[in-house]
Amino acid sequence: MRQSEETEFYQQVLAICLTAGRLMIVGGSEMYRVEDTMLRIARNAGVRDPRVFATPTGVFMSLAGGELSQMIQVRERNMNLELVDRVNGLSREFANHELDFAELRDQIEAVETTTPSFPLWLQVLGAAALSATLMVLFMNDYDWINFPAAAGVGGLGFLAYVWFKQMTRIRFISELLATIVMGLLTLLLHRLFPVTTVANILIGGLMTLVPGLALTNALRDLFMGDLLSGVVRLFEAGLTAVSLGAGVALVIKFFGA
């Protein structure tokens, strides 16, 4: 009887740790932090010899020297740092004995549904501001003609990206379509106002989608020794770059620059 109770407790610990790990990967955390948090939760729950192997597409964990193990698949990954912060905070509260195990379980299960996100209009505004300002910073020639154009294209392109992402489950199609939308918008603007420069507006507008951060994170994972996850993320970044480049190249090919 005693034995089965213990087994059930261990299964619960596994389930909590895996959910926490999955949420952190969905939120875009580094791999060593994911593994660290999961091990910390398990140790603070009083489990002997926990082991973790986390990759961007799946997490494996075993307890009590490998007697019990579970895995969980991670299907979608995007950036949502509020998730990472929440899970991290909960694990810290658990470590400081501000939460007991049952409370931790309820709260971690609630994190996915209750985590607030900024309203869409604010995100679009953020995308527009980001596109316009970074265009000026990058081009380094302070051109104010393309400033509002980049803001408009960036904001609308981001909106299109969010919309396409809800429509399809295929990963890189939404980037491709959003880029095509941006390309068409830019060309339209250029036809209406010939003083604008297509290349500059596109660079600004694409700022929200370009895989610069994904590349940097991939390299950081590689340097930390998480070779598998580094390679996976490097490849993901490469595919994103390909779909952006392909979208723009298609538009330019068929509608002229």
């Binding site: 955390s29 580094e30 910073l137 990058f138 660079i203 895989p211 610069g212 952006l244």
Partner: peptide, 22 residues
């Protein structure tokens, strides 16, 4: 990560990556 990632945004080479593919 919460501070590092937004801070890195102006630096990371997203635009050259896209320009390379294009």
């Amino acid at each position: 990560t919460v501070f590092n990632i937004p801070g890195l945004v102006p630096l990371v080479p997203g635009v050259p990556a896209y320009l390379a593919v294009r």
